[in-house]
Amino acid sequence: MRIARVLTTALLTATALTGTVGSAVADDPSPSPSKSGDAAGPTKAGTGFRDATAVEQGHKATAEASAGDYLYWVFPADAGRRATVKATVTLPEPAARHGASTWRLDVYDGLRRRQSCIYGMQGRGAAKEATSVELSCTLRTVRSWAEPWDNDPLPGSYYIRLTVTDLPAEDLGLPVKAEVEATSVDAGGAHAGGGSLSAPLVPGTATRARDDEGSTPKQAAATISEPDGGWSAGWWSDRWLWTAAGGLLGALAAIGGYSLTRGSGRASRVPPAA
């Protein structure tokens, strides 16, 4: 009976602890997806990394452009998040086009390293009769740190580049409308790292300004805004909760095993009845 009580207590404790872990993760605001895409974003795009237009996660950015232009946006992504970028290109009327076209969506980190997509349609062709084309790219989970030779995504700026890679020469310069949106979800403690960068990779972008005389263009530094709640500290994750739960279950199992062997030893020392 004593052993049964110990094992029952261990089972109830494990159940309660698992529920505590689940509720802690559910109550934590950080794992929730980023804001909905209904929020309005910028209405222009940059033409390169240095003048990429900053956009917050969950905000849709739009731009009027010409077929053949390179369009750039930049958004922040923190450690432990898995980001997804979606883009929609509204094409000119089919009667104005001379053939099919192929569009491509690329994402680069703060070191301007192109990041691979774990799934999504990164490049897609549009038939001559198509009115729009949709692209998407889901990145690997952003790590809090990585070795110098790794190409893992790191916290900081992420650049979106949208362009057409193939179309008839006669269609170059036709007006198109682009719409992009970046969102992310928390990947959980299973993807947490053991270290952190001293600072996120957030290089300055550029905006055009005028000097005091109002004649010479110059570069003025501008950076993306921090994610909601700021950049992560890099050490806390729900992995600590599961580690504590595992340690407690191990201790309870050891107590149960000790009680079982001690009870067996006492039974073996009982003298036989006369």
Rank of each mutant, 00 (worst) to 15 (best):
A130R: 10
Q122I: 09
S132K: 15
A40Y: 00
C117A: 15
A40F: 04
S30Y: 13
A79I: 03
A67V: 07
V74P: 06
K86T: 15
Q57T: 12
C117F: 07
S144E: 14
A16L: 15
G37N: 04
R124Y: 02
T8H: 05
T84L: 10
L12C: 13
T141A: 14
L139S: 13
L17Q: 07
T8W: 03
A100Q: 11
V107A: 03
S32D: 06
A130K: 09
P148H: 09
K44F: 04
D106G: 00
Y70F: 11
A100F: 03
S66C: 01
G99M: 06
T15Y: 09
S132Y: 09
G110V: 05
K128F: 01
T84M: 08
V74T: 13
Q122H: 07
L111C: 00
W103Q: 06
P76W: 01
T20D: 02
A63W: 01
P42A: 12
P42Q: 07
P153M: 04
G123L: 08
W149H: 12
R114A: 11
V133W: 01
G125Q: 13
R124I: 01
T53D: 01
S144N: 15
D51Y: 07
W149V: 11
P42F: 05
V25F: 03
K128V: 13
Y72T: 08
A67S: 11
D150P: 00
T141R: 12
A126I: 14
T62I: 02
A39G: 04
F75Q: 06
T53P: 02
A96M: 13
H59E: 14
S66R: 14
V74D: 03
E129M: 09
S36A: 10
L91F: 10
S116A: 14
Y119R: 13
Y70D: 15
A87W: 08
K44S: 15
T138C: 05
G58T: 11
C137I: 09
P33M: 06
G46F: 04
A52L: 01
D38M: 04
Q115L: 15
V107R: 05
V89S: 03
S101D: 05
A65Q: 06
W73Y: 00
K60G: 07
G125A: 14
V89E: 02
T18Y: 03
R113C: 00
Q122C: 06
G120M: 11
A26Y: 09
R82G: 03
W73D: 00
T20E: 01
T62G: 00
K44C: 02
S23F: 11
T15M: 14
T131V: 08
E64I: 05
P33A: 11
W149Q: 12
L105G: 10
K35M: 05
S34N: 05
V133T: 09
P42T: 06
T18Q: 07
A39T: 07
K86S: 15
D109S: 11
A146S: 13
P153D: 04
L91H: 08
A14W: 12
T43V: 11
R112G: 03
T47I: 10
L17T: 13
G22E: 08
R81K: 12
T141C: 08
A67Y: 00
A26C: 00
G80Q: 05
H98L: 00
P148T: 08
H59P: 02
G22N: 12
V142K: 06
L17W: 12
L111E: 10
Y119F: 13
R112T: 11
T13Q: 01
T43D: 07
A54R: 08
